[in-house]
Design a protein around this nucleic acid. Sequence first.
RNA 1: GGGCGGUUAGCUCAGCUGGGAGAGCAACUGGUUUACACCCAGUAGGUCACAGGUUCGAUCCCUGUACCGCCCACCA
Length: 935
Amino acid sequence: MLDKTYDAAGVEPKIARRWDDANAFAAGAGAPEGADSYCIVIPPPNVTGSLHMGHALNNTLQDVMIRFERMRGRDVLWQPGMDHAGIATQMVVERQLMERQEPDRHAMGRDKFIERVWQWKDESGGMIFNQLKRLGASCDWSRERFTMDDGLSKAVTKVFVELYREGLIYKDKRLVNWDPELQTAISDLEVEQVETKGHLWHLRYPLADGATYEHPYMLDEEGNKRDWKPSDGEPAGHETRDYLVVATTRPETMLGDTGVAVHPDDPRYKSLVGKHAILPLVGRRLPIVADEYPDPEAGTGAVKMTPAHDFNDFEVGQRAGLAAVNVMSVDGTIILKENKAFLEGLESTSELAETVSTLDGEDRFHAREIIVERLEAAGLLDHIEAHTHMVPHGDRGGVPIEPYLTVQWYANAAELAKPAIASVREGRTQFVPKSWEKTYYDWMENIQPWCISRQLWWGHQIPAWYGPDGTIFVEHSEAEARAAAAAHYGKSVDLNRDEDVLDTWFSSALWPFSTLGWPQETPELKKYYQTDVLVTAFDIIFFWVARMMMMGLHFMKDDKGRPLEPFHTVYIHGLVRDKRGAKMSKSKGNVVDPLELIDEYGADALRFTLSIMAAQGSELKLDPGRVAGYRNFGTKLWNATRFAQMNGVAHDPDFDPAGAKLTINRWILTELSRTSGEITTGIEKYRFNEATSAAYRFVWNLFCDWYLELLKPVFTGEDEAAKAESQACAAYVLDQIYKLLHPFMPFMTEELWTLTAKRGQLICHAPWPVAGFADDAAADEINWLVELVSQIRSARAEMNIKPSQIMNLAVVGADETLAGRLADHRAAIARLARLDAIETVDGPPAGSAQIVIGEATYCLPLAGIVDLDAERARLAKELARLAGETARLEKKLSNDKFVANAPDAVVAEEREKLAEYQAQQARVQAAFDRVSAAG
RNA sequence: GGGCGGUUAGCUCAGCUGGGAGAGCAACUGGUUUACACCCAGUAGGUCACAGGUUCGAUCCCUGUACCGCCCACCA
């Protein structure tokens, strides 16, 4: 006999071990020979990561599909693995070194440091896999991959070399997003815009060579001058100025100014184009250039140009031929003293000397203060405006990034994106929900070159070697590079390998084929690529999904040699938020730890909750109370099984649903079939909430609430044949329930499957239920029964009749069919509605509560039990409801336009409804009249 | 600035192809009947954000407004 409640904490590890021992999730386990393949590659968690709610959702949904397809007989592989997470991992190990007061990585040296990271990985990395196992994730754990494995590293090298040779990877000197904290370049995607309260400093740049211009102004209501804009029309007046006012949010970059730009049509500055301004504190002559970029309506219309420290200025500088003067070093400090580009062409003055001596080596933010102070002292600070704007920050380092002029490696993303865009346009890969396709296109169609080099140590070192004269040799190995160099130079030379590593996402982009063995032509690669569905949250569509599309399409081909997408479907699920809708974050302290929920309620309860909440296109607001609710659902199923066992319900291999005779059995088999159809369709269509809800409804509201209750009189009755059939049928239905619930609640269902019979296989390999049983007549009959019992219960409650009060039922207007049904289900009705005698009569007994269902009126004699006023009130309420319904339908049907325009079927349906309501109304009215007469 | 999504019961949300709206939780009333109090039976609760439009008919389609959320973006 089962325990009264299910002990998740005890059962789950036991079941996990059983799966493990049976190697139940190995690729293709349980599948028949030649079965169609089904493959999902896991979004590789960071090696540093631990399971959070997003992982729990993401992997629950994948596991639902994987277990479902495995049971459907597909040859399934859920490919697990981890990402080396370059920056994150390097940071973790560096922090550890610091905490232990060991030498830092620079003191340690590159090789030793990398060795140290591997050591860390072996000792502490990959915690998350055990946590995924606790969640029940049925990955083929024997195939675990790591992006830094030898095999995957070979794939990375091959991809790099080939793309380089095709010209799709190249080196370029341009501005990158530089993280001064981590001292590496990062890609556009790793930049986060953070709203920051700052200032707009308006600076006066004196005009060179004694030039002046007439500056227009407007007057405000109090008669104060303010800046004129072209949209103001006629200016209020002009003043002669020998300086320009420019505005900046970053005064420290002014040291690198090499020009001032104005719009060519701006009337204020037309006369100044071609002249020069003088850069304060430095003394550089700044050409005033015309360019379309400045907006005459914004600020003063004149923009200082710092091509080495601003993306826009860089472009203007290129167009206008302005020099790019870098004034910062890699850590964000100002560098002037040894800075040739800066000093070149400058007149040596005491002002410049002071600038160099006070600012050289200063941190960029401190330099800002010094510069503002000095400008103010010099009378060149026009005014300061409070200004809130978006400041780009590095998403890992957390400090403002610096646009920085360096040489980096780039991938030609625009070219690689073309086929990736076409695949989605032409439907070969589909997003679910479809609305994400627009986001994908918007990004892909405006994609910028992808900066793939990182100035880190932990990662795939770029396979490029430099000869003495700087010639680049991109090869698969150092030996090949040497050979290539020897051929190039005609002798062997010393080579230096590029120090940089690749962006972590470069290797992740290869995940769907590198994990399957590529570049080797493994059987797994052949069988499982193209994979089926990729499951992820929207936040990594750009980082990962788009790049997998690019790389997959570039390197993988189908049998006919056509590019083959890494997956045919991308399912995008929502983010998990706290119950109030806020993003979970450590700093807010609202993080719900999935492992704590698993400890408290079990993995099945958590999975069921996440699945039932996973409606397409919506975010999940997780209230731990819901998890408790679905834990209760598990207990309910557990107890239903317990009840069944008490009543001799046992698996009968010979039970054939088609041969079932009892109406209740044929009814529950009909409902079961309908439900298994709903669950199947729900999972197929990625409507996990619908699949899960259908299971919940069937198990609790049909199977437990009605079927088991209806079986109680059968089990206690005398009809042995009926009993035997029902025992076998109930066992059969329970078996199907376990299977249907298995993708959502794998642990409990495996346990129940094992406990309830000797089985030839694990439930995770058992065949998925097929819908196919339908008996509408049985369904009608039990639906009538349910309606009758519910109505009697409702009437009794409204009349305040105690449950312990057993009543009689007299049925007026019963035809032969109804009389037969009443006889057949007498015991069940009596039990569920707390009745004793049930008889058909010609007229209603005096003083009854009367319930009208269909043709018949069901009377509960009330004499001496309750007052008739309550019954009158009850019937009056019912009459009012019916009157409302009939009035609505009459109005609708008397509308000629409705009758003329609506489809015939709809009109007929509405007529039928009206007739039914009218008949019902008449019967209830008669009942009401009788009570009134009696009272 | 551009884009996407949301607004339905006290709360969290479903509602797919237009034909007078559902669930879970919470609330309230009652309860020990062959499992289950992590339970059972019952009750109440809605101007489907607002304003127009299309339609015989709109929670659903269209337009606009308000509020909320998110993503992207170079405003100095």
